[in-house]
Design a protein around this nucleic acid. Structure first.
Lengths: 205, 205
DNA sequence: TAACATGGATAGTGAAGGTATCCAATCGTG
DNA sequence: CACGATTGGATACCTTCACTATCCATGTTA
């Protein structure tokens, strides 16, 4: 198919597709002549993926490219992919200085017995959030955080269960990405609704 | 205290403070003369809150104002506050048309037995995420989603437990806000680390 | 009283994420 | 094969957001 059809089928304007091509989010089509290129279903799928990451999750174009590059590079070792570039989601601008809670997070991860890469961005994300909460007078010590971590373990089990049976490593990596990133807003929405429900249960029995 | 001290104590520049005043995120100080105003600890606290919401969580200035307004308006009925304006976090631009998965979400909430307001933004967030996943070939039916929802219930219990003992309704409302919004990145970071751990456990026993 | 700070207003900045316009080459239809 | 529409490619422009800088008249303080 050519650009106009790709545009029609994806709902993304031709100029925006050109923009994504320029930015390297989308691979160029197969050239059929000097001024003509052919696109296939892979491009359509990729385009849908881009829109999902930028739209639903609000990732920046830069982060999206990094995530997609990581997907291409690490197909195969799925668990390296999980949470790879995704930690940089919360803040696009890197904070150069180390967060004061970094050591606390390391100790906590150790206490949990988790095997987590030393440089996992999620560590910094957690540290930053805890520091911020602390500065606003909300404690969140080990004791408070522990049950949350245990529930996170069970969520992770559910996540990994959904990758079972996918033998194609490309498909598995892509699904891992989708489940990690796109399920986040869904889980947070479930949490907010559950909070409302629990609050109603407690305050109006 | 005057502006310069507020700036020094909060780490926010005077010009930015002026900007927040203009945008209505921060209440004006008490005028002591025609061209002088006095700020107090409430202003400092509010300023820290603003920076936490915009910085850690990446909320836009507009959304932050809406959240803070909701906080001021609904102090007292905490469970109305929870998830009130917060649903609009995922997408700043409202999608005027209704998501096709809206009905499915309503049925799911019913099945769970949750008491959730009909117009809760979290419903739309969930619907949007499910639609997006569906269009990318990841099923996420009721059956798959149910265990996630049950874990969300338990997270909500932990959340609400932390509001116990706070008798001051203002403090309770503010803590509810902090726990809902600022804990999100922390929970997602825990999830990603737990995924990495679980993946390591499964693939390299 | 003179240097400096303040509140208030207005204009400017830089990044992000597109959008619009041109152009020459090419395709497809008659 | 002629001719209008489409395409790829390049460049310039636009809008929004979150600040930031500059002015200025008034006020405070040493």
């Amino acid at each position: 198919m050519r650009v106009s059809e790709l545009s029609r089928r994806s709902g993304v304007s031709v100029t925006t597709i050109k923009y994504y091509l320029r930015e390297g989010l989308l691979a160029p089509g197969r050239q059929t002549s000097a001024t003509q290129a052919e696109y296939d279903d892979q491009h359509l799928r990729r385009l849908r993926l881009i829109r999902a990451l930028t739209g639903v999750r609000g990732l920046s174009v830069t982060t999206t490219r990094e995530v997609l590059d990581a997907l291409a590079a690490h197909t195969g070792d799925t668990h390296l992919l999980l949470g790879l570039t995704l930690g940089s989601v919360s803040l696009s601008g890197e904070s150069a200085e180390q967060d004061p809670a970094t050591g606390e997070v390391a100790a906590f991860v150790e206490e949990l017995g988790w095997q987590v890469h030393e440089s996992a961005p999620a560590r910094a994300t957690l540290a930053e959030a805890l520091t911020s909460l602390h500065s606003l007078g909300v404690p969140m010590d080990r004791h408070t955080l522990l049950p949350y971590a245990r529930l996170a373990e069970r969520i992770a089990v559910l996540d990994l269960d959904q990758l079972d049976g996918l033998t194609d490593p490309l498909a598995a990596a892509e699904r891992a990405l989708l489940l990690t990133v796109l399920l986040e807003p869904a889980l947070m929405a479930l949490r907010r609704m559950a909070q409302e429900n629990e609050s109603a249960r407690r305050h109006a029995p």
